[in-house]
């Protein structure tokens, strides 16, 4: 790991001041940043330990939602009784990710800022536009089994690894930030970026900008939801494809629908058009399949990951069926309902 200076501010203003220079990284749980620093991929010259900032609470919002402090550990969030009861989709997605130990350390803000698990990004011997802008993308036409089928660019075919972010996308959460240009509220859909020709930039955060909280709106789809994650072993693996499905039903007719995909793109993937298609129709396989097709419009395999397209389509249908039937996927019972 390259040497860096270390600061441990106790106030947000102090943290922002410390972060005003270049080469700065905020350090929270460390589960991804320390990993990447050890791999010599992240090379900050200054690390600002934000663990002492007062960002560790989960609070009710005036509009009936929840405000989750950026430093709330993933496990605390998953097991918070308000989240379990009102936002079980988020709880499920969190528990589908990583391991119990990592969830104890990883934070809400940090989870959003995870970087891709692309093999080439992690191997310094290979070109990677995300790691080393302009060097090329070795993944394209290489080993693409885990790569994107949607939203990729000629410069990068990496996918975002977070499970939590997929649930947040379906729940239309907002990311609250503060930074040199003041406080901001960023819709989750606008938080992560597609790679385009600047794949080194994962999010729309500005330099020195700090995530302070995530806000969930009141609607948690607690009656009809499912987080379905498909991977190469039954636990402790990143998603090949994951689906966050949420429905509001009125007499078995869809009143509102949300579908977000993980493991398929540089950001959680949504298409409101696919969701609108379901509204007013009976919650059934035909509608679900039609929605899946719309959601996957424009999908394109890289060869070894072509399978993700049919897999995603089937997973979307299944997750919606699980949601409609109120039989959400259990994170512990590995039988897929």
């Amino acid at each position: 790991m390259r040497p860096f200076s270390y600061q441990r501010p106790t106030g947000i203003a102090e943290a922002l001041r410390d972060a005003s220079g270049g080469g700065v990284r905020f350090l929270a749980g460390g589960t991804n940043l320390v990993d990447l620093m050890r791999a010599d991929i992240e090379r900050p010259t200054a690390v600002i330990d934000i663990n002492r900032l007062p960002l560790g609470e989960i609070e009710e919002t005036a509009s009936g939602g929840l405000r989750i402090g950026a430093l709330v550990p993933n496990s605390d969030l998953a097991y918070d009784s308000r989240v379990e009861v009102r936002f079980p989709l988020l709880s499920s997605a969190l528990l589908a990710g990583a391991s119990a130990q990592l969830r104890n350390a990883a934070t809400t803000g940090g989870n959003l800022l995870q970087r891709t698990r692309c093999y080439y990004f992690y191997d310094l011997a290979t070109p990677c536009n995300k790691r080393d802008p302009g060097s090329g993308c070795a993944a394209k036409s290489g080993l693409t089994r885990i790569h994107a089928i949607l939203g990729a660019s000629p410069h990068c075919i990496a996918v975002h690894p977070s499970d939590m972010a997929v649930a947040l996308a379906a729940l239309e959460a907002e990311v609250l930030t503060t930074g040199p240009s003041g406080d901001r509220r960023i819709g989750i859909a606008d938080f992560h970026r597609l790679p385009g020709d600047t794949p080194q930039v994962d999010t729309n955060l500005e330099p020195g900008e700090l995530i302070t909280a995530i806000e969930l709106p009141a609607e948690g789809f607690a009656d009809h939801y499912s987080y379905l994650k498909l991977r190469d072993r039954l636990s402790y693996a990143f998603a090949l494809v994951s689906v966050a499905a949420a429905l509001r039903l009125e007499d078995d007719v869809v009143a509102e629908a949300r579908i977000a995909l993980g493991g398929v793109a540089h950001k959680p993937w949504r298409n409101p058009e696919a969701e609108r298609l379901l509204v007013g129709r009976p919650a059934g396989r035909d509608g679900f399949d039609a929605a899946a097709r719309v959601l996957l419009e424009g999908s394109e395999g890289q060869g070894a990951n072509d399978f993700k397209i049919p897999l995603a389509r089937r997973a979307i249908v299944r997750a919606l069926e699980q949601a409609a039937a109120a039989t959400p996927q259990s994170p512990t019972d590995k039988r897929i309902r």
Binding site: T31, N51, A105
Partner: peptide
């Protein structure tokens, strides 16, 4: 891998990803 799991303030954590200074 989890081989470095210890209890920090009663919670299980991977010691390899925790900088001691924090």
């Amino acid at each position: 891998c989890g081989a470095c799991t210890v209890l920090i303030d009663g919670r299980r954590i991977n010691a390899c990803l925790k900088l001691a200074v924090t």
